[in-house]
Every structure is written in structure tokens, then in C-alpha cells.
Amino acid sequence: HHHHHGSGALAALHAEGPLAGLPVTRSDARVLIFNEWEERKKSDPWLRLDMSDKAIFRRYPHLR
């Protein structure tokens, strides 16, 4: 159930192989992290948004 927010940013994801479903670039990863943060913020208003490279690598090590 993907609803768009204002920016309408869509992340490019790997379609197949071992990385299927994972973001292709760091900016794609940022979109995913932001979208998930927006969702989680509803139940956790104090949740901090962390889109640093460090956060991205921790989450998606293949982007190193």
C-alpha cells in the first residue's frame, strides 16, 4: 500500500538477483529511509530522521 507524499519521489530498486528489492543508489536509499520514517513517525512522533551516509551503510551495506 504505497501512498505518495508531496515530493512523489520513487526509489529505484534492484529488480533481480541477490540485491532484489534493495535501493540502487544512496539517494534511492534516502527515499526509502524517509518514507519509512514518515510511516513510523505516526506511532512514534519523536523518531529522528537519520539519512546520513553512516545510517545508509548500516542499513544497506551493499551501497558502501
Rank of each mutant, 00 (worst) to 15 (best):
H1V: 12
H1T: 12
H1N: 11
H1M: 10
H1A: 14
H1W: 05
H2E: 10
H2Y: 14
H2M: 12
H2P: 10
H2L: 12
H3E: 08
H3Y: 11
H3T: 12
H4F: 12
H4T: 10
H5F: 14
H5W: 15
G6N: 13
G6F: 14
G8P: 12
G8W: 07
G8H: 13
A9R: 13
A9I: 15
A9H: 14
A9Q: 13
L10M: 12
A11F: 05
L13P: 02
L13W: 02
L13T: 09
L13H: 03
L13M: 07
L13D: 03
L13C: 08
L13Q: 04
H14Y: 13
H14V: 05
H14I: 08
H14C: 05
H14L: 03
H14W: 14
A15W: 09
A15E: 14
A15L: 13
A15S: 15
A15N: 12
E16R: 07
E16K: 08
E16P: 04
E16G: 09
E16Q: 12
E16Y: 11
E16I: 09
E16V: 11
G17T: 02
G17R: 01
P18I: 07
P18C: 05
P18G: 05
P18R: 06
L19S: 06
L19K: 04
A20Y: 09
A20Q: 13
A20C: 08
G21Y: 04
G21R: 04
G21D: 05
L22Y: 05
L22H: 03
L22M: 08
P23T: 00
P23R: 00
P23A: 01
P23L: 01
V24E: 05
V24H: 04
V24Y: 04
V24P: 02
V24N: 02
T25H: 06
R26F: 13
R26T: 12
R26K: 15
R26N: 08
R26S: 08
S27V: 09
S27Q: 15
D28E: 03
D28C: 06
D28S: 05
A29E: 01
A29P: 00
A29W: 00
A29K: 00
R30Y: 08
R30A: 08
R30E: 07
R30W: 06
R30P: 00
V31Q: 10
V31I: 15
V31T: 09
V31E: 05
V31G: 03
V31C: 09
V31R: 13
L32D: 01
L32R: 02
I33N: 00
I33L: 12
I33R: 01
F34C: 06
F34V: 06
F34E: 03
F34M: 07
N35K: 15
N35L: 15
N35F: 15
N35W: 15
E36S: 05
E36P: 00
E36G: 03
E36R: 04
W37D: 00
W37F: 08
W37M: 02
W37K: 01
W37S: 01
W37C: 01
E38M: 15
E38G: 07
E38L: 15
E38D: 08
E39W: 07
E39A: 11
R40W: 06
R40Y: 08
K41E: 04
K41W: 07
K41L: 09
K41V: 14
K42A: 08
K42Y: 07
K42V: 10
K42W: 07
K42G: 08
K42D: 09
S43L: 14
S43V: 14
D44T: 06
P45W: 05
P45H: 07
P45A: 07
W46A: 13
W46V: 07
W46G: 12
W46E: 11
L47Q: 07
L47R: 07
L47D: 05
L47N: 06
L47C: 09
R48K: 14
R48L: 12
R48V: 14
R48A: 10
L49R: 02
L49P: 05
L49A: 03
L49D: 01
D50Y: 04
D50M: 03
D50P: 02
D50V: 04
D50F: 03
D50C: 06
D50L: 04
M51P: 02
M51Q: 05
M51F: 08
M51T: 08
M51W: 09
S52D: 04
S52C: 04
S52M: 01
D53G: 05
D53M: 10
D53R: 09
D53K: 07
K54R: 11
K54H: 10
K54I: 10
K54Q: 11
K54V: 08
A55C: 06
A55I: 08
A55Y: 13
A55D: 03
I56T: 02
I56L: 08
I56R: 00
I56K: 00
I56Y: 01
F57R: 04
F57K: 05
F57N: 09
F57Q: 06
R58P: 01
R58E: 13
R58Y: 10
R58L: 13
R58T: 13
R59I: 10
R59M: 08
R59K: 11
Y60S: 00
Y60G: 00
P61M: 02
H62L: 01
H62A: 15
H62F: 03
H62Y: 11
H62I: 00
H62P: 00
L63I: 03
L63G: 00
L63F: 03
L63S: 00
R64M: 12
R64P: 04
R64Y: 12
R64K: 12
